[in-house]
Design a protein around this nucleic acid. Sequence first.
DNA 1: TAGGGGAACTTGTACAAACAAGCGAGCACC
DNA 2: GGTGCTCGCTTGTTTGTACAAGTTCCCCTA
Lengths: 255, 255
Amino acid sequence: MAARYELIADDLREGIISGAYPVGSQLPSEAELARRHGAARGTVRQAVAVLAAEGLVGSRQGARRIVLGAARSQSFAELHSFAQWARAGGHRFGGQVIEQRRRPASAAETARLGGGEVLEVLRLRTLEGEPVLVERTVYAAWVAPDVEALPADCESVTQALYDTAGLVCAYGEHLIDAVAAGAQDARLLGVRRGSPLLRQRRTTTTHEGRPVESSDDRYRAGSVAFSIRNSIGANPLVRQAIDLRSASGEHMFES
Amino acid sequence: MAARYELIADDLREGIISGAYPVGSQLPSEAELARRHGAARGTVRQAVAVLAAEGLVGSRQGARRIVLGAARSQSFAELHSFAQWARAGGHRFGGQVIEQRRRPASAAETARLGGGEVLEVLRLRTLEGEPVLVERTVYAAWVAPDVEALPADCESVTQALYDTAGLVCAYGEHLIDAVAAGAQDARLLGVRRGSPLLRQRRTTTTHEGRPVESSDDRYRAGSVAFSIRNSIGANPLVRQAIDLRSASGEHMFES
DNA sequence: TAGGGGAACTTGTACAAACAAGCGAGCACC
DNA sequence: GGTGCTCGCTTGTTTGTACAAGTTCCCCTA
């Protein structure tokens, strides 16, 4: 089922993880890999391009590719879905809807998600039994019914939407910064008001660019970090200056 | 000088920014683009792969590619170098070395950077005249002399190292989380002790995987955010659970 | 022994061709 | 009018070839 180049990429990735290609060592040449897998050089190049995008190997024209680091599990789903990430990492986790209601979309939300009656949900997530994440999500009107049909303790909303509605979230934009815990955050997470939280704001869309949800997730400091490995070729993470005037005053919820 | 596919990618990117291809619209087919640029389809595919990696366009087999969002400047350098990022964004910025000294590498540093006498530097960076970033960097022994030769108010260390030593930082691993401001952080940034900071810990290496520096950067909340746009195909950012026991106790500096 | 000059190797770019797989629209049929 | 199907278009995968550009290492020379 999987494409040829993916199989080769998997093989190489496993070789790196297992130590067959230690960090700092050279990968076999493209020609050698092509011979070994009985594939064309172009196919091998697609495979190593995958690894390079993951930051596992580096390359310079003329010199052999070098192993930069050992692998890690990584998938799109894991960045978007707390549950899928936690499960992949073998963590014990849970979740509970604290509050949920429909309301008309604000102007900003209409721009992001489309108009109509949006559904806003407040969830608390736990990791290893401890509360670590307050999730304030606004769902677009067209997915609201599917979300409302889910049980309050639904572990993975993303997974459930895929199972019940065939909905695939394919693209996302994330903004990561630090904020002080508000009164509600503090109460739910069991920290003092004003203590640091790691905030991830995101907007998710389907393949076609249709907006699904917009969320404000706040992690207790010391519980979760974001990790990125980048190379000079491909680098999707950038800093953004925040307008100091209109700054963090804009809240999704007033409650 | 630039490769053919880069020219095509630039052309498309500009078309997206200028509005010739509005968000949500369809891109011309590969065949059409190939005809228009007088290039082979494979070359065009390389070009659109660049845009897809940037999160600008999405694609599904069988359907035309769709514009997902307008562009933003993004380069590897901008994530690694505060100065290069600020300059590209048209911000007014500055920097000053607060403290600098050599000392033997600790065990952890030897593992990350190699042994010998490392150089640790404490810098304060300003944006639009306000202090926003405390940067605690440890340089590997082999670059220490070059760093020491720089003036205390050097704007861009990365740029200076490239100019003077031909040193190119090509890969990096970043860990992003939130921490409370310590006494020194608070004093330098002009915030209260315990207020939230956005922390970026990174290790940078050259093309060959030779470690250059390891740094702990702390941004004042509300000044800078990290942004990432990801797609189901390419997704370099992942969450990491933090061991709650050995947590943030490990500091680079004791001062 | 130190240095220069190559030769062999390796990655980067580009083109051409073919088939597979998925999408969308129009058409025929009920 | 609605449903289902087929056909053309578009993207995905793979192979093969050719040349450009950069690296590595050996050998020969001064």
